[in-house]
Design a protein around this nucleic acid. Structure first.
Lengths: 123, 123
DNA sequence: CGAACTGTACGCAATACTTCGAACATTCGT
DNA sequence: ACGAATGTTCGAAGTATTGCGTACAGTTCG
């Protein structure tokens, strides 16, 4: 049921497409900062209210090879596939993550309300 | 008329979203390998037949800050915004480009017909 | 077993993306 | 001015994405 792609099945187009969404990029940032978490935890840090909406995004991130998703008890733990992504595309994840931070610095300069959510998760 | 974003206006989400499309990623690879070219040249290397379709993609790439597009005579020359992208997201472009090559190596192992188009442009 | 908790599956509506053809604007060569 | 070449703009069709609510499945605790 998990449908994780093999490491060699991961494609850059799918990864970029998955991370091209503000919601999913935010998810990745949360996972990078906070490590393995359950769906509700990540959901709480975003502006999405419906769980079914996020189930869709987990799916996109999972099937593109960006995240692991493995059940633990009644929870479904999410984590970054760092090892695989770094192996296939060295530096990509860090560059994108750093880019998101850089973007935020410019966005806050213009005045953005949603920018604070991720900034607070790093402290 | 060209609607190029300023360097500080570029956002990683837009860049990733733009490059998440197979067609546009291929365009970027062609521009990286072949330098400044006109639309028809790039169009010829892809499987798209309609010029109006590519006009849409130029627009996406241009407005996301990935390419420059400047008229020269009756042509419209396309080129990568390497300096700006490298300044905003150091290493991102090279990593993605390298990732596309790496993907192709795995894709050709499985047998892909479209893979050859880009491989030949790097020689 | 039954209740609460966590997350998925399905269907639906709104929106965006992708692609194309036809018509138009601009430039170059004569 | 005329014709060829290069792209853009517009309108339209097909497809994909996004987000939500409801219903459902599995786990934990009493």
């Amino acid at each position: 049921m998990n449908r994780h792609p093999d490491r060699d099945q991961i494609r850059i187009e799918s990864v970029l497409s998955a991370l091209g969404s503000p919601v999913r990029l935010a998810v990745v940032r949360v996972l990078d900062a906070g490590g393995e978490q359950n769906c509700t935890s990540v959901l709480g840090l975003l502006g999405i209210t419906a769980k079914s909406t996020m189930t869709h995004h987990w799916r996109v991130l999972r099937e593109s090879g960006v995240i692991w998703q493995h059940p633990s008890g009644r929870e479904n733990l999410l984590s970054l596939r760092r090892e695989d992504l770094d192996a296939r595309y060295p530096g990509l994840l860090d560059t994108i993550l750093a880019g998101a931070v850089a973007d935020e610095a410019l966005a806050t300069a213009s005045g953005s309300a949603t920018a604070g959510a991720l900034a607070s998760s790093s402290g």
